[in-house]
Amino acid sequence: MIELVGISKTFNGKQGAIHALRDVSLSVKKGEIYGVIGYSGAGKSTLIRCVNLLEKPDTGSVIVKDVDLTKLSTSNLRKARGDIGMIFQGFNLLKTATVYDNIALPLKLTGLNKKEVEERVEKYLKIVGLDEKHNAYPAELSGGQKQRVAIARALSHEPEILLSDEATSALDPDTTEAILDLLLKINKELGITILLITHEMNVIQRICDRVAVMENGEVIEEGKTKDIFTAPKHATTKKFVNSLFSHKIPADILTSLNQTGQVATLSFFGESSGEPALALVSKKFDIYPNILSGSITQLKNESFGQLVVHFKGDPAEIKKAIQFLKNDQVKVEGVKISDADTRVS
């Protein structure tokens, strides 16, 4: 559906050239929700603006529905953009226009007749849950409602692709959850492919099928969301994953615990919270597992949990127990003393 091949983009600043993108390639499949995450300055905003050529890359190809947009004429590019909707962090609503007109005016500019415009506005306001806000003005809406209007406006052009540029960054946690649920609904019921960028890992874990991690204009890691959570490779990716967990153990306590056994982090998927596996371990081996900390986060299709556990007992028995857990598809990692005062990984 979307394929970026060797995309590079450089801006000329007061202090010299700024390399926003460096030979970036990624592929978004039809019908999936693909997330791009990175800290400020990573290049993700430039990347998403290259997809509909709001920013034209210096080099590389932007292929959407098997057509390289960089090779289209101005008129053909305008037509191709009709299949690509976009929502922004700042909503970009007309302050002096009603909710209805914010959606209707862009449709009128495309040449749709009055009846078609009315039908589309009604349809998409209903989908986003604002069918009773036709005559309201942006100043009368909450941040979440404004974003819903922006989403309805993007959907009203009936695109096959929806680009989301930090669409939840200005919203509170509860409103963010509601918008993410709406994006899931749009993806599932309308079959729209969604490419989003964010600096919030909770957005990735809640709705994305796959994710790319960016840093300094490059994709440093990419894969299925589940795989990124299970086995992050790059230090920046690990930092993002660990941001969802708050396990902290003081170094002096960790040192003391390791004298009577071993402290380890257990990572697992599925509905189980991990206790049944530990119960089996305590019965099968002569050790005493003690949960020091734990949390579970929900990914798009399943849960992912971490437990920090102190295994007390004979080293040989602990080794057998850990191997048992690994054989049971539980990822087991030791906790270093140098990591004790930060997040356990």
Rank of each mutant, 00 (worst) to 15 (best):
L77Y: 11
S73H: 06
L93A: 03
E55V: 01
D101R: 10
K44C: 04
P57S: 10
Y34H: 13
S25W: 14
F88C: 07
P106S: 03
R49C: 14
T46S: 15
V36M: 06
G35W: 10
G41F: 04
Q15C: 09
K108W: 08
A80C: 04
E32T: 05
N102H: 05
Y100G: 03
V51F: 09
L21G: 14
F88K: 01
D83T: 11
R81V: 00
L105H: 07
K44N: 08
N92T: 01
L69D: 01
K108T: 03
L107W: 08
A104P: 02
R22S: 15
G16P: 00
L21R: 08
N12G: 13
Y39E: 12
S61Q: 07
F88L: 02
I63T: 07
N76S: 14
D83N: 15
K9H: 12
T59I: 00
G38P: 01
L72Q: 02
G41A: 08
L107H: 02
K79Q: 15
K71L: 11
I33V: 12
I87G: 04
K9R: 15
V36S: 12
I103Q: 05
T46C: 08
K30H: 06
V36C: 08
Q15T: 13
K9Q: 14
K44T: 00
T98E: 04
D83G: 13
T59Q: 13
R22E: 14
L72K: 03
G85T: 05
G16L: 06
K44V: 10
